[in-house]
């Protein structure tokens, strides 16, 4: 039971980071980012591809990335176990590199939107993300592809049985921080500008705002945040396997969570994420019981796909606004104005 709750909390943290970032892009700015998985993958590339190479270089190891990372992990784990500062430093380094790589990727990735309408843009973003996934999966020289690479355990100084709890707490804290950051970011003139852009780009342009710059900024913030999740996931599982950064897991499910919770409403997105993650983890935990009970002649993962596909469709059909509706943005000056009006009415 305790195990289930911790797993749900961990995935809730990881997914909340991704869904909040997607909500910023799709819910607020109206960018149909069908390539969210790319930013998450970049987080994994930052840890498995860049930090690992730095470590390999620092330890003076040689050989191909898969073998050398295994050796680097052993050496790094010993170092971290002897002095926690190394672990904390490495952790911060990983997140920083992931955020930078994510921001750059996001900014480049949105450039085709300059000339494209919504549908063409969505196709292009999906195609870019899908191709990047295929390349990382089949080319074993980047992050080990489908073989995967080992990652040092940044919590090597924590006793084994406590490790998962500690990591979950850190992940949830980071998710909380991301929530506060995005809440602050969107409850500002910038947030209203994003919503204005979502509703009508021409008007925003007519008021002298550069829509393209705004899109680049938003996509790069969103991607930087989402790649934190990829880095955290890699650090948690102490290895990176490109296969686990698929479109279903990191683009489709995040969309499902924000549509379930409420597009353009950060609180709603958190509720949606918690609901979805709970359902998914319970389904994964009890998959053998479910297959046995229903006498399914197939694996439970297919049932999961069918169920979540149908759920998504039902949301689109019957409740496109989600569990919690979008609310207007009240910035500080507006709150004052409203307060004055209320007083005047009294």
């Amino acid at each position: 039971m305790e195990q289930i709750i911790i797993t749900i909390a961990l995935w809730f943290g990881l997914y909340t980071i991704v869904t909040l970032s997607l909500n910023l892009e799709y819910g607020f700015a109206g960018i149909p980012n069908f390539g969210r998985a790319l930013a998450v993958l970049m987080g994994a590339v930052a840890v498995g591809g860049i930090v690992n190479r730095i470590l390999i270089f620092a330890f003076g190891l040689s050989g191909d990335i898969i073998v050398a990372s295994g050796q680097a992990r052993t050496l790094a784990n010993e170092l971290i176990a002897s002095n926690p500062v190394y672990g904390i430093g490495l952790f911060i380094l990983c997140l920083a590199i992931a955020a930078i790589l994510g921001a750059i990727t996001g900014a480049l990735f949105i450039l085709p939107s300059a000339k494209l309408s919504e549908d063409y843009l969505a196709i292009t973003l999906l195609a870019i993300s899908e191709v990047a996934f295929m390349v990382c999966n089949y080319n074993t020289a980047i992050i080990g592809g489908y073989y995967g690479v080992s990652i040092p355990d940044v919590l090597a100084f924590v006793p084994g049985e406590k490790r998962m709890v500690v990591f979950t707490v850190i992940t949830v804290l980071i998710a909380l921080f991301v929530y506060l950051f995005i809440e602050r970011l969107t409850h500002s003139p910038y947030g209203r500008l994003l919503k204005a852009m979502r509703e009508n780009e021409d008007i925003v342009e007519a008021y002298g705002k550069n829509v393209m710059m705004l899109r680049i900024k938003t996509a790069s913030i969103g991607a930087a945040i989402a790649s934190l999740s990829g880095a955290l996931y890699s650090l948690y599982s102490v290895n990176v396997i490109a296969t686990s950064f698929s479109r279903v897991e990191w683009t489709f499910y995040p969309f499902l969570m924000i549509l379930l919770g409420g597009v353009g409403n950060n609180r709603g997105v958190v509720v949606g994420t918690l609901t979805f993650v709970t359902a998914k983890i319970l389904l994964t935990m009890y998959k053998h019981e479910i297959t046995d009970f229903l006498h399914l002649p197939f694996e439970a993962v297919w049932l999961e796909y069918m169920m979540f596909g149908v759920l998504m469709y039902l949301i689109l059909l019957y409740r496109p606004e989600g569990l919690l509706r979008e609310k207007p943005i009240f910035t500080e000056p507006i709150k004052k104005v409203i307060g004055r009006k209320v007083k005047a009415a009294e």
Partner: peptide, 12 residues
């Protein structure tokens, strides 16, 4: 979503 449903059905 339809693609995912079809994937589930085909896989099953």
């Amino acid at each position: 979503a339809l693609d995912l449903i079809l994937l589930g059905i085909i896989g099953a």
